[in-house]
Computed example of a mutant assay.
Amino acid sequence: MQELKSIYEITKNFDGFLFDAYGVLVDEQGLLEGATELLSHLESIGKPFWMLTNGSSKTVADTVKRYRNMGLPFSVDNVITSGALLSDCLDQLTEPGQAIGVLGTEGSHQLVRDAGRCPVAITESKDFDILVIANQTDYDFVPALDAALSLAIDRIDRGLNFTVVLTNPDLFYPKGENRFGITAGSVSLILEECLKLRYGSLPPNRIIKLGKPFPPMFREAERRAGSKRLVMVGDQIYTDIKGANDYGFQSVLVATGLTGREMLDSLDDSLKPSYFVNHLKES
């Protein structure tokens, strides 16, 4: 691991840059220092960049609109969300028009519609065998999770299929200085651990995970870039850094989000970033 004084030291070393959103470019308070300046610099030297976000509460168009309103130069061509991977995943699991249970926002429901399926609220229907866990908000948490667990156990006990598609594997995220919140990964983890307690283990592919650190998002980034000489800039070891390292990308840990420098010495080498930097500012 190389410790950088500035991320600008490596801007010419790669064919493209991949950025996480929360904790790297923004938090719930707004833009993080240095974000817009770094992206402008990359544009000026002809280096393409993409946002890779596990967020799946909005459509890609709405995600782009939100970040452009904050002053970040993104378009639908260089934003890859975990929700955008949903269509290909569902094509492998279901026929068009099938009902899909959804835990998430209206934007999460729209992602399922855009994939050619019919989203249903889990507390209103039991006529589905695939549950998409996309977000932790905009539904009555405990009743919805109770309904999901009950339906999963009922179907598994009867020898029927029940598959969870988790678009956002993040467990928590930075909301601002010393403030954090849980995400969809924590919702799925509750369900997963309950099912493990009942059945001992879960069959392969019972829970399908799409976002970082899993390969689909990095595979899509490589496809768009036409190169594997990419570097992932993130703030989370077990999603951004591990995912990039496992896929064969270089990685940069920036200390403006969940992980500080003090954690790195105790990590296995496979989890350490290629580079560490305190922030995205030029100096």
Score class of each variant (00 low, 15 high):
192 E>D: 10
231 V>D: 03
121 A>L: 06
149 L>M: 15
14 F>N: 05
123 T>R: 11
212 K>M: 02
271 L>R: 06
30 G>N: 10
100 I>G: 03
1 M>T: 03
78 N>D: 08
39 L>H: 05
96 P>K: 09
190 I>R: 08
67 Y>H: 14
32 L>I: 06
9 E>P: 11
183 T>G: 07
189 L>V: 03
115 A>N: 03
207 I>M: 11
169 P>I: 10
15 D>L: 08
109 H>A: 14
79 V>M: 09
97 G>V: 15
246 D>V: 14
94 T>S: 12
97 G>Y: 13
140 D>A: 15
238 Y>K: 02
106 E>T: 10
114 D>G: 01
203 P>W: 01
167 T>M: 10
267 L>T: 09
257 G>A: 00
47 K>F: 01
206 R>Q: 05
99 A>D: 04
257 G>W: 04
99 A>P: 00
137 T>Q: 11
109 H>N: 06
7 I>N: 00
90 L>T: 12
164 V>F: 04
126 K>H: 04
273 P>L: 00
73 P>N: 06
259 T>M: 08
226 G>C: 00
102 V>F: 00
239 T>H: 01
78 N>Y: 10
76 V>L: 14
168 N>E: 12
229 R>E: 15
116 G>I: 06
38 L>E: 13
176 G>W: 03
62 D>G: 07
281 K>R: 14
193 E>Y: 02
208 I>A: 10
119 P>W: 01
42 L>G: 04
25 L>V: 13
204 P>V: 01
26 V>R: 11
64 V>Y: 10
13 N>L: 10
237 I>M: 04
8 Y>I: 12
205 N>Y: 05
263 M>W: 08
269 D>P: 02
279 H>W: 08
40 S>R: 13
68 R>G: 07
136 Q>S: 12
87 S>L: 07
258 L>S: 01
73 P>R: 11
24 V>Y: 00
177 E>K: 06
267 L>Q: 12
16 G>D: 09
116 G>Y: 05
199 Y>I: 08
98 Q>V: 14
201 S>P: 00
100 I>A: 02
82 S>P: 09
186 S>E: 08
223 R>E: 15
75 S>M: 08
8 Y>F: 15
244 A>H: 06
104 G>T: 06
18 L>M: 07
209 K>M: 14
101 G>C: 07
269 D>V: 15
37 E>R: 12
191 L>V: 14
90 L>G: 14
